[in-house]
Design a protein around this nucleic acid. Structure first.
Length: 982
RNA sequence: GCCCGGAUGGCGGAAUUGGUAGACGCGCCAGACUCAAAAUCUGGUUCCCGCAAGGGAGUGCAGGUUCGAUUCCUGUUCCGGGCACCA
């Protein structure tokens, strides 16, 4: 009987579906385990072989955990709102709802092909009103909350109002109530009670975790919307690569900055990779320093108390301050600039305004302008010139710095460029050429700090500043509040109605605010979204609805909770359900969400925890980042001649050079129009790229699907590119394949390059094709076999044969080609058990530690060995199937039932298997001599600890030891002694 | 520029706490079956010398620690990723 994977896989997929084999319940005596994949955005391109990598890993782990007796939640859904669908709609006239539905269906079909064990009864789509009702609801909770810095958690706005009524915002008991940096001032209870409603609402808005405010936003003209910081890369939009400019707009924000500390603290409690933790840490960008007030020296007016406040992480260098720099946008500029410098400063500000974000980042020029003003160093009275420069950012710290050229590279370059004298406060640590940011120097020229170690001086200076009332400790963050509104259609509408400039939340019973149907998605007036065009919808109960929509990350910030209780229409997730499932135990996805989705969802989780809706404040206990599968592109190389007749010619490159065919063809003007060459082989040490540029070759992507390994299918190529149908191909051996000729003897070797897998490189491999050709089990195992899950690697279809052969080999342990069934009921012998035990133990370890590639190898070894000794014993084979089933579920299920089992293999008693086999297989005794030796020796199954000791004692070296030449340590590997330490 | 991570055969990659480097697969070579091919199976395959037995070298490069280093330390080169005027 042959291994008919197509029939087997389809059949079992159907049975699993029919019997709800993968449905998961919220109550079970088993321990719970939650495995989650980052749900996909259903793009129109469908899945390529790279996408399922993480899903396969999580699927294997899910099945493995289930075998081990866990109740495992493993759901899937779609991140269905977002920009691309809307862009697509504008370009092709297909409504986002329609294209999204189509794309989802296609995704689902592709996913089903691979045999995943998702519990589809829990599927969610963020664009489903039943789902986004709760996204809107959570938004309202954020809107109705503020961050209490005293209790370090979110509290209700109603509590804040009570506090304001009683004590205003000045109460030191509640430091978090103090005035916000950029808006409301301080007020007393009396003040508060005298404020009118709009004023009160304005103040409250400044405390809400989801708030509306004016701010500089990343505006992308081409996309017609605002983008969050993590959606902008080098001044260009992440999606589409369009220019992004800063623009002041009224926007919704999430006050994620208030959670900065807890987001940092939380990282200590979770298992993310170091790289991931670092990315988040850097993004949050916490720095410890001090704010220092410098008095401005205004020559004409001795009484002037104008203060320049700077932020620095190095207050210890205060005697090394040679100039001040403030941001060109800084409000003080106008006030302090001297009449003589006024025109120069204005000119400079105009120049800065003319520069786009992108230009500024691309070319870091040293620019700046002296304001004519001076500030006074509080410790030695020195007059310090105040400059403006674009290298100081208005949005960070106080928008002003004290520049210490000997200790900061940027300040140093600035000082050199503008010939500002440099004070050296670190002696030999400063060489006059380069700044030295050390903290280990002893301070010089530093007044009362002289002789002090810099790192110690920091605290001393701060204390002095506090005593003098001109400075204090200050912590700063790079992270900004997250822009939360988009001027777009295809997203969640805000449950907000504006009346007289006040935002009113809609009551819960009016949720969801359904996204109204719309045909023409053109932007509304005044940079508002398409919804602004819907007059009827917009006007609502005497006010106007918020017409922006929420960003793509809104729905994905809490979806892991909805899976726990997906059909609940009373609550976003019943507390019982979230208490049962708790944290996601294992979250798998790419690194691209490091500072977007992952941070936002962590924040939302913390808020929901603070408000008492869930019982944990970190969503993901462990995070694994799967690598990207890149495409392996194939090229042919082409050379163009300008001749009368245009007959393309394709040449194998090394032959071209080595036989001077090039010269020959070049002069053969009757025949040639184009030459296309191939191969990446080096010639005479010259890199192929140099050769090409010197000859004027160009290269052309070839569809990887018409290339076998690196050999081009010439006829397929001619069909694929009709303009080459008349091409002459010059092959690896120098022979020419002309248009009519049928069977070329030599191959045409393509060039190879690893690139992103993408349609435009013709290197996309569709999992459907692979599954059709080799089956889902082979596909799954091969993806794992490619290498560590975390690692990026190019896809090579070639190697899949090996894995396919393995499964066929496994099949032959059960079925003989001629005789059919060939398993028997004989008792396994020691050798057979040993082979099995090794495999079980290895695979178990490997699966547990996510090393699926070595796990697959262990199966291969096991099957090879069983084949070699012709072991067809049922007891062995059955055990093997159980541990293999997470990797290759279809074929295992088939064979499992063939052996006469009636339950599905996932419900088979793995713990029993464990008991029966693993304990025996763990008879590998650690050997310890003088308590030092850690190596293990692998002795036969029946051996006891005593036997092991006997073996050691019989060893010649040990004999010598007993004779008195006592070695310190004996080193064994397997049964062989390999080293003696005397 | 700063911060992480990596470098092992022709290729993808093994080697779990320092202990026989190269598991497993691809590719390649040889053989079996076949009129032949494909498929399948068997054997070989780090490099160098040697018919062989055998010998020598070997985990980017240069050192160090150790009885012993792919693994630990120092320096260095290259590659990948992240951040990028954050004071």
């Amino acid at each position: 009987m042959e291994y008919n994977f197509r029939e087997i896989e389809k059949r079992w997929q159907k049975i699993w579906k029919k019997n709800n084999v993968y449905k998961v319940n919220n109550d079970s005596p088993k321990p719970k385990y939650y495995v989650l994949d980052m749900f996909p955005y259903p793009s129109g391109a469908g899945l390529h072989v790279g996408h399922p990598l993480g899903y396969i890993a999580s699927d294997i782990y899910t099945r493995f955990k289930r075998l081990k007796g866990f109740n495992v939640l493993h759901p899937m859904g779609y991140d269905a709102f977002g920009l691309p669908a809307e862009q697509y709609a504008i370009e092709h006239g297909i409504h986002p709802a329609v294209s999204t539905e189509q794309n989802i269906n296609n995704f689902r079909r592709q996913l089903d092909n691979i045999g995943f064990c998702f519990d589809w009864s829990r599927e969610i789509r963020t664009s489903d009103p039943k789902y986004y009702k709760w996204t809107q609801w959570i938004f309202l909770q954020l809107f109705d909350s503020w961050y209490n810095k005293k209790s370090q958690r979110a509290e209700r706005i109603s509590l804040l109002v009570k506090l304001f009524e009683k004590q205003g915002n000045l109460n030191t008991e509640y430091p978090g109530m103090g005035s916000r940096d950029n808006a409301v001032g301080d007020f007393s209870a009396e003040d508060w009670n005298s404020f009118d409603e709009p004023r009160r609402q304005e103040i409250l808005m400044d405390y809400r975790l989801a708030y509306c405010g004016y701010g500089e936003v990343n505006w992308c003209e081409a996309l017609g919307t605002v983008l969050a910081n993590d959606e902008v890369i080098n001044g260009l939009s992440e999606r589409g690569g369009y220019p992004v400019i800063k623009k002041k707009l009224r926007q919704w924000y999430l006050r994620i900055t208030d959670y900065a500390d807890r987001l940092l603290e939380g990282l200590k409690t979770v298992e993310y990779s170091d790289a991931m933790k670092e990315m988040q840490t850097n993004w949050i960008g916490k720095s410890y320093g001090a704010e220092i007030d410098f008095h401005m020296i205004i020559p004409d007016d001795e009484s002037d108390k104008t203060i320049l406040r700077v932020y620095t992480t190095r207050p210890d260098t205060i005697f090394g301050v040679d100039f001040m720099v403030i941001a060109p946008e800084h409000e003080l500029v106008e006030k302090i600039v001297t009449p003589e410098q006024k025109s120069a400063v204005d000119e400079y500000i105009d120049y800065v305004k003319s520069r786009s974000e992108r230009e500024r980042i691309a070319e870091k020029k040293i620019t700046g302008c002296f304001t004519g003003a001076y500030a006074e160093n509080p410790f030695n009275g020195r007059a310090i010139p105040v400059w403006i420069s674009e290298y100081v950012l208005a949005g960070y710290g106080t928008g002003a710095i004290m520049a210490v050229p000997c200790g900061d590279e940027r300040d140093h370059k600035f000082a050199k460029h503008f010939n500002i004298p440099i004070t050296n406060i670190i002696g030999d640590y400063y060489n006059g050429e380069e700044a030295n940011p050390t903290k280990d120097a002893l301070l010089l020229n530093s007044g009362f700090l002289n002789g002090m170690l810099m790192r110690d001086a920091i605290e001393v200076v701060i204390k002095k500043l506090v005593d003098l009332g001109i400075g204090k400790k200050k912590v700063n963050y790079k992270m900004r509040d997250a822009a939360f509104s988009r001027q777009r259609y295809w997203g969640e509408p805000f449950p907000i109605v504006w009346k007289d400039g006040i935002a009113f939340p809609l009551p819960e019973d009016q949720l969801p605010v359904i996204l109204p149907p719309m045909e023409d998605l053109k932007p509304g007036p005044d940079a508002e979204g398409p919804l602004a065009n819907l007059e009827d919808w917009k006007h609502y109960e005497g006010g106007t609805r918020e017409v922006n929509t929420m960003p793509g990350y809104a729905g994905s910030s809490w979806y892991f909770l909805r899976y726990m209780d997906p059909h609940n229409d009373k609550s976003f997730c019943d507390r019982k359900a979230s208490d049962y499932w708790g944290q996601v135990d294992l979250y798998i996805g790419g690194t691209e969400h490091a500072v977007g989705h992952l941070l936002y969802s962590r924040m939302w989780t913390k808020v929901l925890y603070d408000l008492g809706y869930i019982g944990h404040d970190e969503p993901y206990r462990k995070l694994v980042n799967q690598g990207m599968i890149q495409g392996s592109s194939r090229y042919v190389y082409r050379f163009d001649f300008h001749l009368q007749e245009h007959i393309p010619i394709v040449i194998d490159f090394p032959i071209l050079v080595s036989t001077n065919l090039f010269e020959k063809f070049k002069n053969d003007e009757d025949k040639l129009a184009q030459i296309v060459v191939s191969s990446m082989v080096q010639f005479e040490g010259l890199d192929i790229k140099e050769l090409f540029s010197s000859f004027g070759f160009s290269r052309l992507h070839v569809d990887v699907n018409i290339v076998n390994g690196v050999e081009l299918d010439l006829n397929a190529f001619r069909n694929w590119r009709p303009e080459y149908s008349n091409a002459y191909f010059i092959l690896a051996d120098g022979s020419v394949s002309s248009p009519g000729s049928s069977q070329p003897k030599a191959a045409y070797i393509c060039g190879v390059e690893v690139e992103k897998m993408s349609k435009r490189y013709y290197n996309v491999v569709n999992p459907d094709d692979i599954v059709f050709k080799f089956g889902a089990d082979t596909f799954r195992m091969y993806e794992m076999f490619l290498g560590p899950v975390e690692q990026s690697k190019p896809w090579e279809t070639k190697g899949i044969e090996g894995v396919h052969r393995f499964i066929k080999k496994l099949w032959r342990l059960f079925y003989d080609e001629v005789k059919g069934k060939c398993w028997n009921e004989e008792k396994p012998n020691e050798q057979e058990l040993k082979i099995l035990h090794r495999a079980i133990r290895k695979v178990e370890e490997d699966t547990e530690r996510f090393s699926f590639n070595t796990g697959v190898s262990a199966f291969m070894v096991c099957v090879n060995e069983l084949t070699e000794i012709k072991c067809h014993k049922r007891e062995i084979l059955e055990a093997l199937l159980i541990i293999l089933t997470p990797y290759a579920p279809h074929v295992c299920e088939e064979l499992w039932h063939a052996l006469g089992n009636t339950t599905t293999i996932l419900d088979a008693a793995f713990p029993k298997l464990e008991q029966k086999y693993l304990q025996e297989s763990s008879k590998v005794y650690p050997v310890s001599i003088n308590g030092k030796l850690r190596t293990q020796i692998d002795i036969s199954l029946d051996a006891t600890q005593n036997d092991v000791e006997q073996i050691i004692l019989q060893n010649e070296i040990v004999q010598k030891w007993l004779e008195g030449k006592s070695p310190k340590r004996l080193i064994f590997v397997k049964n062989k002694m390999i080293n003696v330490v005397v």
